[in-house]
Amino acid sequence: MILRDFFDIEAVKLDLEGETKDEVLKELIGLLGLDDKSEGILFKMLKRRENLGSTGIGNGIAIPHCRSLVVNRLRLAFGRKPDGVDFKAIDDRPVRDFFLIVAPPLEVSNQYLPVLGKIAQFAKEPDVPEQLGQLETPEDFLALLEAKSI
């Protein structure tokens, strides 16, 4: 499977409103359509992962991720905050593009790590930040993933 196959269009938002790291994380979680309690638990887990070390990998991209019992399958979301937010990224630059990845602890299909690796690989391609910045619709995002064939 390619990355495109893991994203639902409802889980792509190109105009995130959050102004802080926490607000952006909550907004990304909201794209997954979970109940309130599950959202709260997931937020705590993602925060704890961020406290171990930022998932901001540089070039304006972050990949917050964790395993959690509150999902029953691999779930992904993408969000873009045009002005960027301080995410304590490796290069200390603001983060504009966010890929959220959440998987259950025991994932039968075993896709979590391959997908995490693929997104990290995708994010490190030199032309990707510029291409992500030019997206106008969620459909454009999915088309970009498809074009990359990762």
Partner: peptide, 16 residues
């Protein structure tokens, strides 16, 4: 139960 879920998630992360 909410606390138990958090503990289990943390242990899962640790195990991973």
């Amino acid at each position: 139960l909410e606390i138990l879920l958090q503990i289990q998630d943390l242990k899962g992360q640790r195990r991973g």
